[in-house]
Design a protein around this nucleic acid. Structure first.
Lengths: 119, 119
DNA sequence: TTTATGTTCACCCTTATGGGTGAACATTAT
DNA sequence: ATAATGTTCACCCATAAGGGTGAACATAAA
């Protein structure tokens, strides 16, 4: 299957280490080695994660001499957010339904006290 | 690595078939076979995808006799949305920065016309 | 009871992930 | 020129994904 934009995006953020890298870059740009030092994995493994984040467009790389400076590029997350938004009404409906249930239950008590029929 | 909530969530929606299944269930609940018929993959493969969606909490299953009725449960997507929201200011800042750049460029033309120094 | 339908289970295969190591390459410092 | 530092490349390993097939199991229908 051809890896689409959303596939790469969601795949990239489905790993806790990569989410941590993004969080780390959100604070400050960093070199590959700096990132590797902050995580309990090897430099090479870190390098691979970064490559996946780049493929997803979430990280930009600026090569300055032998240093590779990584920076966060959150723009692609807009697409992810947009996709999720498509489903917002569903979970809000569910919350609304739950709210209605709770409200009805609470109202039920009062209503019962007032002698209204139940169920 | 212990698969956390977000890992399962993002992992689940990182596959196009699974996103399609969610979209399909958003329209109407369906049985496993019904879903399998709508996609160019086998029934078994469909069953596996559904299992992953269930693990992520995105799909609920109601067993009615021999039929397994699947329904969308978008609630977990709230967590995903919340995580992404953390980064909203970054892409908005970037857009703001781009806007500032374009504005500055346009202003620059006018300014140049007015004889202001460049670069 | 027998038959048909709906799902899953147990495998097989291929590719991708996440992790590691050591060597190679690039650049800066001595 | 040599040494040290920063990254990647080329592998190895184990496990999970995504796909498939055929058998088993559960329930409904004849």
């Amino acid at each position: 299957m051809t890896h689409g934009r959303l596939d790469l995006l969601f795949g990239a953020v489905s790993d806790p280490t990569r989410r941590a890298i993004l969080a780390r870059l959100a604070v400050k740009n960093a070199r590959v080695t700096e990132l590797a030092e902050d995580f309990p994995i090897s430099l090479n493994s870190t390098s691979k994660h970064i490559k996946m984040l780049e493929r997803a467009g979430l990280v930009h790389r600026l090569v300055v001499g032998r240093d590779h400076v990584l920076s966060l590029n959150a723009a692609p997350l807009r697409d992810a957010a947009a996709w999720i938004e498509t489903y917002r009404r569903f979970w809000e409906d569910r919350l609304a339904a739950l709210d209605a249930f709770v409200t009805a239950k609470r109202a039920g008590k009062t209503a019962t006290a007032k002698g209204r029929t139940r169920k």
